[in-house]
Write a protein that binds this DNA or RNA. Structure first.
Lengths: 123, 123
DNA sequence: AATGGTGTACTATTAATATAGTACACCAAA
DNA sequence: TTTGGTGTACTATATTAATAGTACACCATT
């Protein structure tokens, strides 16, 4: 709609993924405070309600904890975050392989094509 | 909604992808007739209008041709289909690598994790 | 005690998707 | 020529996402 969002998926889900990526990368560390719903809403030119919906979902996933009147914080549970990172990695790889095989590519083609792309880019 | 569809993306787009996969796999061959909008609608328990929207988009992509009163057919242009297959492969690989790196995984981790998953499954 | 920033809840409106239903144009085959 | 299957177009309705606006509860700081 406004900025860097895919029109075919709810914004709150894309917002949720952006935050999760930041956590998995380590850009948002354990216990660190997230931007307020109003602040993040302003940053992405999106309604605060939409941000809140993403935050609520993040809390449901136990990735963040909210303290009324204080803000929303990344969970202190490092094991949970490590598990999240591993889980996301496996899911991503799994769906990738599944999709590729569904399109008729075999393991050799996948590895070959992947090596090409990895060589093209910077590590 | 009904059967095997993701609720976070329009059905007509998911339908479009299903057809494209069938074409790329070779299950739907050059010049072959697609199911009618009514037939496919019944098969997926979806409104014919939704199917038609997917078919219209497929025609815009030049992968199918529609002949009024006859039906919708896979394009005769084999070069176009080969190009489509290659394009989809590269796009899929590219977004996969991009996503993985965005989450903080490097080339080594990607290859390693991928090899594990490929060994788990049947080739 | 007062203030300001925070999460949260609620109503109302708009836009897009999916659906239902109907109708028409086109073409091959009987 | 008629029939049946096809794509296509149109109206109308229900649902969901996003937005706008308002209000309240909570808590650290002053």
């Amino acid at each position: 709609m406004t900025d860097g969002f895919n029109a075919t998926q709810p914004i709150y889900l894309q917002l949720l993924q952006k935050v999760i990526i930041q956590i998995v990368r380590g850009d948002l560390k354990t216990g660190e405070k997230l931007p307020s719903v109003r602040e993040l809403g302003a940053q992405f030119k999106v309604n605060p309600n939409t941000v809140q919906r993403a935050y609520a979902e993040l809390e449901r996933l136990a990735v963040v904890e909210t303290r009324r009147g204080l803000g929303t914080f990344v969970t202190e549970d490092k094991a949970c975050l490590n598990q999240l990172r591993e889980q996301l990695k496996h899911e991503k790889i799994d769906t990738f392989i599944q999709d590729m095989k569904e399109m008729g590519f075999n393991a050799v083609e996948i590895i070959a094509g992947l090596s090409e792309h990895l060589n093209d880019k910077s590590n």
